[in-house]
Nucleic acid binder design. Structure first.
Lengths: 183, 183
DNA sequence: CGGCGCATGTAACTTGTTACATGATTCC
DNA sequence: GGAATCATGTAACAAGTTACATGCGCCG
């Protein structure tokens, strides 16, 4: 049982979904802190089915390439809850931009400046998206017991991205200052 | 040529090192945004040697389990500089704690509260370490052309971890508020 | 009927971790 | 001489990506 399995279980706890739906949901809503590829999702779905943790909602047998809608089964809900209670595993962060920054004295300031600006653009977009999510969800906050904790997740993204943009502003200023006086 | 190779090249640009040194350095100084295992480092070192990008500083041949000190060769510096100028690759972030938070309405608030507190403790430690690094480096800022950009990397860690701690404070308050009135 | 978005699946590959085996050096 | 730390290396495995093949269903 790897993390992919638990993400799938969690998403199915909100309602039946296809593998495609799961992928799309993760790409849009979890983008700021998670990712999965089809190569992980489809084999996981099959494995979880085999364990009896999830099942096909509409037994769409017969046709080979039919749409497969999965739903969470009681046994799956049990393992999901057990996972939720277990200690949180190792967090993975790999920010190539900081590697570049670390060694950036080996190049001209404009090279690093371009990287930082690109990073800022990407995270400004993320921030805008997160603000939109927050607005949409706050409007219907009362409608679902899951909403307040989802808002906490969005708030993490908001705070992290704001910190990134602050850093970009300072770092761009620093690099611009170095632009003129080179060796 | 994968990212591990470039990290190694970068570290060797600061002076000769063994594989062990490289691993330790990454574990301590890059911990906040990068990681590598021996299983990646030692094969990479051999490959980079084969390409003529790095070489053994002290030709310690003969003994099989001898200490191998590597140094950057001119060809290696070239590819390192070329990498520095290339567009920054995909950033990887996988924060399991946010996955747990997202689905946390399925458990009791104390479960999630324990996770958040643990997360806060870990990042408070990180913040303390980073502040120490910053202090140490600021004292000798002028001594090396690399120091100002390293300080920018530390500042990223500072800002990110401060944002994390803010989030923890708010989230703990939210979860504590839910503690009493459960179903 | 052509294109697009929905949808499933996998094979080949790359990347990364873990656990283990081995041995050198240092310092008490 | 024993413990800790320094040091190298790899095999087995786990995780993750990419590229591709396939085909359905709807809309214009």
């Amino acid at each position: 049982m790897n993390q992919t399995n638990y993400v799938i279980l969690g998403l199915l706890s909100e309602g039946p979904m296809t593998g495609y739906d799961i992928k799309r949901f993760i790409d849009i809503r979890f983008r700021f802190f998670w990712s999965e590829s089809y190569g992980q999702i489809y084999p996981s779905l099959r494995a979880l089915c085999g364990e009896g943790y999830i099942g096909e909602a509409e037994a769409g047998e017969g046709t080979p390439r039919a749409k497969r809608v999965y739903r969470l089964l009681p046994r799956g809900m049990e393992v999901l809850r057990a996972w939720l209670a277990r200690p949180v595993g190792k967090e993975t962060v790999r920010l190539e931009i900081l590697l570049r920054m670390y060694f950036s004295h080996l190049t001209e300031p404009e090279v690093m400046l371009a990287h930082v600006r690109e990073f800022r653009r990407a995270h400004a977009r993320d921030l805008a998206t997160l603000r939109l999510f927050e607005k949409e969800l706050k409007a219907i906050e009362e409608e679902d017991a899951a909403h307040p904790s989802i808002l906490r997740v969005i708030d993490f993204g908001l705070k992290a991205n704001e910190a990134y943009l602050d850093w970009c502003a300072e770092t761009e200023k620093y690099l611009e200052g170095r632009l003129g006086h080179e060796a």
